[in-house]
């Protein structure tokens, strides 16, 4: 356990020091994307990993966060930081509205229902004039400042903001894991009827886990909107994003604290590098290689890459 903490401190220290050592924008951008996906993966892991409710609708929360921020900023000039809170509020509301009927469904049917919800959200935003419809929303270019959440000369502030979000998400996940909520979620995942016999209100705990997942994902959505400064429905609510979050957790280790972190650190560079080196072929070779890598990983370590670190040490 002690060793784990030392490794974590070194890892986070290295992450914090990285942009000071390497000044190039591309590696910084890469790490920003990795941390963004790691944070979202951690969010997904709470509902999909610990609780075992596979959600293919988490991108909707990302979109809600991004859109809440963008609409408030463009139309009312409200700071993105406030937009972030509003986004969280709407995401939790969405989680509860979706969760209330969908959590009555068992197993695969919940996953199918969440696909539908994600697609409905995508369609609504594609056709909603007020929210920019299919064209999306350009953020106004404001003077650089922390309050405005916009930085144009360097990616450095974005880097540290996402680092904080990532570490906070990890902290939340750790707290969940070490609390009654986390134990109950795992019990629900393993045996619903068994969990009920021990007085666990299934519906309630699924809802809490889903809401926490929604908040984390929504905050990432706000960050994304402010980082790219342009959002449109398919960049923020695509089904593919939800699937990617699921794959990140699967590669890293489902229901393990560091699973999504490892997953994101393997998966995102893999996505980016196959695209950089093979994407120009124009025949989808990058996607073929990339899916083959996923299959190889799945065969090599079906419990996720996390298993490499825990092998031999009984936990």
């Amino acid at each position: 356990m002690k060793k784990g903490i030392i490794v974590l401190i070194i890892f986070l220290g290295a992450l914090a020091a990285f942009p000071l050592v390497y000044q190039d924008p591309f590696p910084r951008h890469m790490l920003i994307m990795i941390m963004l996906y790691a944070a979202m993966g951690i969010g997904w892991n709470i509902i999909g990993g610990y609780t075992g409710q596979v959600s293919f609708g988490n991108a909707a929360f990302f979109g809600v966060g991004a859109y809440a921020t963008a609409i408030l900023l463009v139309n009312y000039g409200i700071s993105p930081w406030l937009g972030m809170i509003v986004g969280c509020f709407f995401s939790v509301a969405l989680a509860i509205i979706v969760g209330y009927p969908c959590f009555r469904l068992q197993g695969h049917y919940f996953a199918i229902a969440t696909i539908a919800v994600g697609e409905i959200m995508l369609l609504v935003f594609t056709n909603w004039e007020y929210a920019g419809a299919a064209v999306g929303i350009y953020m106004p270019i404001l003077p650089e400042s922390f309050i405005n959440f916009e930085f144009h000369t360097s990616k450095l502030p974005y880097y540290y903001i996402i680092l904080v979000i990532f570490v906070a998400a990890l902290g939340v996940s750790h707290l969940v894991e070490r609390s009654r909520l986390g134990y109950y979620c795992r019990a629900i995942k393993e045996d619903t009827d068994g969990a009920r016999s021990l007085g666990i209100n299934i519906q309630r705990y699924k809802m809490i886990a889903f809401s926490i997942s929604a908040v984390i994902t929504s905050i990432c959505g706000t960050f994304y909107a402010q980082y790219v400064l342009y959002i449109h429905p398919t960049s923020t609510m695509d089904l593919m994003m939800s699937i990617q979050l699921c794959i990140i957790c699967l590669i890293g280790g489902l229901g393990k604290l560091y699973g999504p972190v490892i997953g994101a650190f393997v998966f995102i560079p893999m996505t980016e590098l196959t695209r950089v080196y093979l994407g120009s072929e124009g025949q989808g070779v990058d996607l073929m290689i990339y899916s083959m890598l996923i299959i190889i990983l799945a065969i090599w370590r079906p419990q996720g890459l996390w298993a490499i670190f825990t092998r031999g040490t009984a936990k």
Binding site: E190, D191, D193, G194
Partner: peptide, 10 residues
């Protein structure tokens, strides 16, 4: 339960 419903992974 007649068929045990313990949490096997825990």
């Amino acid at each position: 339960f007649q068929i045990v419903r313990i949490f096997k992974e825990m």
